[in-house]
Design a protein around this nucleic acid. Sequence first.
RNA 1: CGGGGUGUAGCGCAGUUGGUAGCGCACCUGGUUUGGGACCAGGGGGUCGUCAGUUCGAGUCUGGCCACCCCGACCA
Length: 493
Amino acid sequence: MSKVVTSRNDDYSQWYQDLVTKADLADHSAVRGCMVIKPHGYAIWEKMQQALDGMFKETGHVNAYFPLFIPKSFLSKEAKHVDGFAQECAIVTHHRLKTVGDTPETRQVVVDETAKLEEELIVRPTSETIIWNTYRDWIKSHRDLPLLINQWANVVRWEMRTRLFLRTAEFLWQEGHTAHATKQEAIEETERMLEVYARFAEDYMAMPVIKGIKTENERFAGAEETYCIEAMMQDGKALQAGTSHFLGQNFAKAFEVKFANKENKLEYVWATSWGVSTRLMGALIMTHSDDNGLVIPPKLAPVHVVVVPIYKTEEELSKIEVLAKQLASELKTKNIVVRFDHRDTLRPGFKFAEHELRGVPVRLGIGPKDMENGTVEMARRDTLTKEVVSMDGLAERIVATLDDIQSSMYNRALKLRESMTHHVNTWEEFEKALDAGGFVYAHWDGTAETEKKIKDRTKATIRCIPLDSVAEDGKCILTGAPSSRRVIFARAY
RNA sequence: CGGGGUGUAGCGCAGUUGGUAGCGCACCUGGUUUGGGACCAGGGGGUCGUCAGUUCGAGUCUGGCCACCCCGACCA
């Protein structure tokens, strides 16, 4: 009974926390703001990594790895960049400990002050600086470009307040860092990777996203332009799910990265960077899960089908097991993972609840009645519906069901987003729509001051200027100044 | 960094006017069960966050410290 999660209606935030811990995704660790990602959570992250990594490689990228530590002086070379990150850096100052105290009771380990570093090291909050410092040596000619590199890594940002997956002091991510000969190429790359993220979110996570551009206020520190995908969570709040930055020549200039063009003239290199993080785990949870637990889209489920045997005798069990094994090997050829839940100390009802909590998309119950009738009970996690189906053609049926789960999860999420999206023209409507929750399309005069005033008054930020927005004359919701297109406002995570 | 809260068994909690720690779940053993979170019997498991003080005696009272969580401000 201890595994029941708080309902979304009672306390959304508590529901989220319950879900993360009770579905065995992650736990708070002994270190403030840092989480332990448990095997089940990590398995889902690995599925995400796999899919994304494949997409990166398809678009011509290769993986590499750069150091965890960044010399302090590197960070300050790009002025805006350091401004953006200075407040949340972990700093390494020493490289040795020593033991003091003569007795076992008083003995303790302290920092050895004689082992102070000449230059402090910053634990990377992001790797632009160390990477661009390295690129200086790698890029000499236009023939070295484009340079398309990704790294899977952990980064540390000393956030004041943390939440499991959504904002942790240490998080896992991938960061792509590319170098190009022309501005146009770099912008194309930025947009290409935004497209990859959007496709991943929608096709794999079954999470609809809006592609857009950040306003100056929300732009990445050191970028010329930040593109993003924005998703809406079930409570109507927005979540930035991924960003792709056009960095211009800012880092090339800061780190003196020049290449000889075809005319043998030296030019600064154009750059992009783009990343998604374990925050996507939070997005996944808050997009689909319900009061019974996690709901995972089949494409990201570590296990697609679980078979729960219902039996009295060992003989019955072994018959069911033979069936399950057969089904598993048949489905394995279609990359569907079937697990047979053979645990004999737990009753079926407990297993049903547990697999629901952990989000297995399809559950099959097989008992004596089924063995007699040649049927199984098939339950869908997304709809919580059950039906008794024939064992004949079961594999095909499962394939079709998984496909259907994948697409209906997307459709459900899209429908919810649409039902919580509003277009408003007056301040009064604007406030009302924000309180109702969701995305609010409204006109804005394009100034950072107005954006900030709106944020102070309503806690809503401009999530993005949608890429597909159409030109439309209107008046700024706050100042009444003319505006040529709507932007999306929302309260956000 | 402000506000609030919590530290007692793996988890969730109780512990009265101070008298040396208990309940549920989980765990172990045995048995009966098994189509939506089983039941019976027996059993194991504790520096009560930490330091100091008051006291014959502190989980309980006093003070300090630490940690974590939640709500804000800041950020992916």
